[in-house]
Amino acid sequence: MASQGTKRSYEQMETDGERQNATEIRASVGKMIDGIGRFYIQMCTELKLSDYEGRLIQNSLTIERMVLSAFDERRNKYLEEHPSAGKDPKKTGGPIYKRVDRKWMRELVLYDKEEIRRIWRQANNGDDATAGLTHMMIWHSNLNDTTYQRTRALVRTGMDPRMCSLMQGSTLPRRSGAAGAAVKGVGTMVMELIRMIKRGINDRNFWRGENGRKTRSAYERMCNILKGKFQTAAQRAMMDQVRESRNPGNAEIEDLIFLARSALILRGSVAHKSCLPACVYGPAVASGYDFEKEGYSLVGIDPFKLLQNSQVYSLIRPNENPAHKSQLVWMACNSAAFEDLRVLSFIRGTKVSPRGKLSTRGVQIASNENMDAMESSTLELRSRYWAIRTRSGGNTNQQRASAGQISVQPAFSVQRNLPFDKPTIMAAFTGNTEGRTSDMRAEIIRMMEGAKPEEMSFQGRGVFELSDERAANPIVPSFDMSNEGSYFFGDNAEEYDN
């Protein structure tokens, strides 16, 4: 993207840094990872977990959730003011799984939030270390993106479920800051804005008074975040219109849905970061690795190297396929839920299948599930090659597409044709070009129609051997075009429920 120079890199967003050079960025990201790792080690000690239990991804998720809940100030305040039966607002906890007599047992633990905050700050040299908290939120978000298709949420806001490739980060909490905003897809931002506008339509006082002023500035800020994701002048001009509207209503909703559809071809720039579970960072720190000293990046080879040398386990339900569970977590670790499966298959070195073909449910185990038949197995999170994460949407291309997802959002900077089903997408653009945004709409449609099938995206960008740390010898991959490109292809993934 041309304006790259004016933006802070995501590592800076990730670490609240002012302008830093590459070495400083690597050190501050490393410091953040160190903090998460030290916190995780301490929690495993508190909970008396064995090494194996500490490497269980379900335990990692519970521990991450506990610290996120302990620092969720708004919710904590709300819980104190609106006490609900049987919930102690000062405590947080969740299921911890232990191996007892050759069987997995679930144990519900409860801790004072104050105590968890103390352990977290102690692991982070006394700081609140917001960057580390956001990092864990993005890992949870990436896992949700890989596990669930947001059909219901899309339909509720009037969008087409086939636009799911635009929904990265749709389950990120509001408090995820600049680093969170960077990884949100165009569809996620559109959905947040539509929800806001709908509230304004239904509630006369939404934009009024002292609160209304705050609401208005939040609305304009979200519009600017979305505008910054678009790469064409016409899309940005249309966002200006939406932002400046005196009284946002149905016309703005129409414009936003139009823009979301246009992003299936004229893709937005959305950041991709490899955020790993805390149970990967903990053992690495415990083994003596100093992330701050060595430096770390979320968008280069580092996460690949770390996963190459990590042992992570997962509980497996009786009829689940461990290899499929591994694929789910591998995609989440690489922030690749909406990437082209052919690119992923090449990088991973084994075939990556669409969601609907995987015999696996989510990673988390519900409290009512029976533990008797639970097994555990090693997650295979290694890769054959590594590639640089991208934040450009890439230019655009036609490809055989599917009944489910009709476009992709690249996660890796790797040369390819970008699949999208042009006739299906263009069919949504018939007729409606009147109104105050008509010239911009016409211009956007013209650009979409001009998108050429034979153009290559990320020209000359390749993948790298894991021994090639400096990215000196790019390998331009070859793809098996007979395979499906979309992950949520004609899909039956479970729906995400809060």
Rank of each mutant, 00 (worst) to 15 (best):
N250Q: 08
N473T: 00
G288N: 10
E24V: 02
S359F: 12
S84T: 00
A366P: 05
A428N: 04
W207V: 07
S486K: 10
P248K: 10
A179G: 04
R317Q: 11
P277I: 10
N21Q: 00
G394E: 09
T188G: 06
G404Y: 06
M163K: 05
G393H: 08
M163W: 09
C223P: 12
P410Q: 01
Q364T: 03
D51M: 09
R26E: 04
W330E: 10
S482Y: 10
L259D: 10
F479A: 15
I388K: 00
T360H: 12
S367R: 04
S245V: 04
S176M: 11
V100P: 15
R121K: 15
V363E: 08
S367Q: 05
R446P: 00
E24I: 03
G300K: 11
Q149I: 08
N417H: 14
E80S: 05
S482N: 15
M105D: 02
V242R: 06
I41Q: 06
A218R: 07
N250A: 15
H82A: 00
L193G: 15
K77F: 14
S353H: 14
V408Q: 07
R19N: 10
S478W: 01
S274M: 10
R216T: 05
A493F: 05
I347H: 09
R121Y: 02
R391E: 14
G17P: 00
S407D: 10
P248F: 07
G209H: 06
T430K: 00
Y219C: 03
Q231W: 09
K90C: 05
V363P: 01
E24Y: 13
A237L: 15
G462F: 14
Y40T: 01
S310W: 02
M159N: 08
P453Y: 06
V352D: 07
F489P: 10
R216F: 10
G35A: 04
F488Q: 11
R461N: 12
N432L: 13
K422F: 08
M167W: 15
K198M: 10
E369T: 05
I257C: 09
R317N: 11
Q12T: 01
W207Q: 07
M159I: 05
F429H: 06
L328P: 07
Y496D: 13
S60Q: 12
S482E: 10
N76P: 03
E11R: 04
R391G: 14
Q405Y: 10
T232A: 15
N432S: 15
M331W: 09
K229A: 08
A332D: 14
G268E: 14
K452C: 09
L381V: 01
V155W: 13
M43K: 02
D372I: 10
C164A: 15
R38N: 07
R317W: 11
L276A: 13
M32Y: 10
Q364I: 15
A153W: 10
T360L: 14
L47V: 01
G177S: 15
R26Y: 09
A234Q: 13
L79G: 04
R382Q: 06
K198L: 14
L49G: 01
E294Q: 15
M1C: 10
G5N: 12
R441M: 09
A411K: 06
E64M: 13
P283G: 00
P322W: 13
S345T: 01
D302Y: 03
S3M: 01
N21M: 00
I475K: 02
T147V: 03
E254S: 12
R436V: 13
A403H: 01
S28V: 03
G393D: 08
D497M: 15
P474D: 09
S482D: 10
A427T: 15
Q149G: 13
S377K: 07
N124D: 14
V363N: 07
Y487D: 06
S297G: 13
R361V: 04
M239F: 09
G268N: 02
Q409N: 01
E455G: 06
I119K: 14
R213T: 09
A178R: 15
G35K: 07
L315W: 08
G228R: 09
V363T: 14
I201R: 05
E192N: 03
F230R: 10
E220W: 11
E81G: 14
C275Q: 10
S326D: 08
M105S: 14
E375G: 08
V363W: 09
S170A: 04
K48N: 08
N211S: 15
Q4I: 02
T350F: 01
R150C: 10
M163I: 03
T6I: 12
T215I: 12
A286H: 13
R382H: 05
S28A: 00
A22E: 03
Q122H: 14
D491C: 02
Y296M: 12
A153D: 05
I444A: 07
T157M: 09
R106C: 10
E369Q: 04
I475W: 07
S165W: 10
N309V: 01
R174Q: 13
Y296L: 13
V414M: 05
E46K: 09
P423M: 06
F39D: 07
V280M: 05
R400C: 07
E320K: 07
R446L: 05
H135G: 06
E469Q: 02
I197M: 04
G169F: 13
G212R: 12
L307N: 08
A337D: 13
R461S: 13
S359C: 08
A284Q: 07
K305H: 03
S467P: 05
G431D: 07
T430Y: 05
N205G: 00
K293Y: 10
K77L: 02
T188I: 06
E46P: 15
I138P: 09
L172I: 02
R150S: 04
T15P: 01
I388L: 12
E369R: 07
W207D: 10
